[in-house]
Design a protein around this nucleic acid. Structure first.
Lengths: 180, 180
DNA sequence: CCCCCTTCTGCAACTAGTTGCAGAAGATTC
DNA sequence: GAATCTTCTGCAACTAGTTGCAGAAGGGGG
């Protein structure tokens, strides 16, 4: 599974506490691997026990007290192995495509509004990605390999959102202008 | 959740037994909503109890005996409601994009082979979709609304695979010809 | 007839992810 | 200086999905 590796990556980018991680998952790593704070806390516990990360010594260790984690060499090693590991892509799932197929049988009443809503959401996400690209990846920041890799990831997000925007636009056109 | 609706859709397309459904999920509905036979059997049980489907009267009802299900009006109603229901798209997950981001930190050794493997798989899937399109959706079979909807779904699959093929091709070019 | 193979259904036990809630520490405010 | 709000961590209980296995029925084949 990928959650521990997502966390290791995030912690290597910057040592953080559970809540900080949660927030960063909400806007960066989470764009392609989302997780709730619960998953994160539990996984931090497991990673610590496995010796992949450790809590930075805190002045007052207590419940409700912020706890920062950093990655240990073993954790970095595990992540490095994982990058090269062979793993089949898991079949994608789209409830929207499924609904479309159901609509082919029971009728498309009410579907149009939902498609429009999704279209708006995907447009929004696309704009967000484009803003990030402009901010974080100006042409001169695409030289080093790490930067090129990070930019490729973002490009993936951009192009995927573009795909949805185009597909939804086409679907709406195909449904005809006056469906219920 | 969508699994029960996937099953209702499949059963409306054709009443089936659990194993038949499993096979059809492996090659049709499952392209965008996969499920194991276990999930399917359990869900069939729940759907039957909810009065959404019923088992067709079998000559010899017994364990190990094929059991066909068909959708009842209540099930069709539920599916019809679901088509119009509002439901946020769940954030996508891609272990590959995640790995790319990890590679930006720990190095991209060994990643290239994996990208090539995925590229081959996506090309294969794309070809399969195109073959289905040619077989099931010749130009004259795209007239009725149900056919147009079903074709849109397939188009979604085609374009998504195209996206991956293009992204992976670009990523491989970007990684440079001689990465480890 | 008996063994074995396939088909079909299903239980049990697991991992992953979600939701709701609660308690401690520190900051804020009146 | 007490009431309350925010931050941070975490438990408990749930739903969804996965994996491994087993048992019944039926169809050959020697």
């Amino acid at each position: 599974m990928s959650l521990p590796h997502a966390i290791l990556t995030a912690l290597l980018e910057k040592p953080s506490s559970g809540l900080e991680l949660t927030r960063r998952f909400d806007k960066s790593i989470g764009y392609f691997w989302s997780a709730t704070h619960q998953q994160i806390y539990r996984e931090l516990g497991k990673l610590e026990q496995a010796g992949h990360i450790r809590a930075l010594p805190a002045p007052v260790p207590a419940r409700g007290q912020k706890k920062e984690y950093e990655v240990l060499p073993a954790g970095r090693g595990e992540l490095s192995d994982w990058v090269a590991r062979s793993e089949d892509p898991k079949p994608m799932r789209s409830a929207l495509l499924l609904r479309m197929r159901a609509a082919a049988i029971v009728g498309a009443e009410g579907l149009r509004a939902e498609l429009e809503r999704h279209l708006a959401l995907h447009r929004e996400q696309l704009d967000e990605y484009l803003a990030i690209e402009e901010r974080d990846f100006p042409a001169d920041r695409r030289r080093t390999e790490p930067d090129r890799l990070r930019h490729l990831v973002l490009r993936g997000g951009v192009d995927l959102e573009r795909f949805w925007v185009e597909w939804l636009t086409g679907a709406l056109a195909e449904l005809g202008p006056s469906e219920a």
